[in-house]
Amino acid sequence: MYKWIHQFGSPKYFYDISLHLSKWVTIVCIVCFIGGLYGGLVLAPADYQQGDSFRIIYVHVPAAWMSLFIYVILATSGAISLIWHIKITDIIARVSAPIGASFTFLALSTGAIWGKPMWGTYWVWDARLTSELILLFLYLGYIALQSAFDDKRIAARAGAILALIGIINIPIIHYSVEWWSTLHQGPTITKLDKPSIHLTMLIPLILMVIAFKTFYIAIALIKTRSEILKYECNSSWVKKILGN
């Protein structure tokens, strides 16, 4: 395990693997995105209650899930880098934070647009919406911390601590709709009993979730490679790549 982590943490190894990985995740992302959009906007029937406005779900839910997922990545990378001092996880966390912030913004704004016709308001201060807004603040704080320190290692450590403290917000966001009475409805897919979305509506949603996840991986890989090149610009393998 330790050996594997260090091999994975080796910048050159990561760089080589990520080039192969990039190609595949990009293909999967594009295919799922087109399929999900077509399925969600054209094939899926209108909802019995919400009509066509429910189609916002196909961008809202994947964005919201990714906002949580990327924060877990930040905290996990933070823990790994605090324990093992691995450069690559610092980089992954640093480049992921703006992507996570953008997905959080997307979840909040599409949710507001969806809330207006259905709930009758853009925004309410219920537990779900408030905790998701706090997530956006956590991301912005993390990004600000990264630019506050010139020493990247101190910045990574400070960011790791913030990410680990903020991780408490993730279960709060997820369970807020069950723990407290909220205007936001309960979970549709992640609950354990019968799924409460019709199959024709569910399949495009799953495709969009995969598309958003692979989108994040693809963008994070591009950014991580750039950072690796900067870090390792004096090593021979980078010079060889740039020489071509």
């Binding site: 009509g51 916002i56 964005a63 953008s102 599409t110 969806w114 016709p117």
Partner: peptide, 22 residues
């Protein structure tokens, strides 16, 4: 979009802008 054009398309519009910026 069954009368919800402004909402649905603005939500998708924002999504495309955010993805494109990334």
């Amino acid at each position: 979009m069954g009368g919800y054009a402004a909402y649905v398309w603005s939500a998708y519009g924002i999504s495309f802008i955010v993805l494109f910026l990334n």
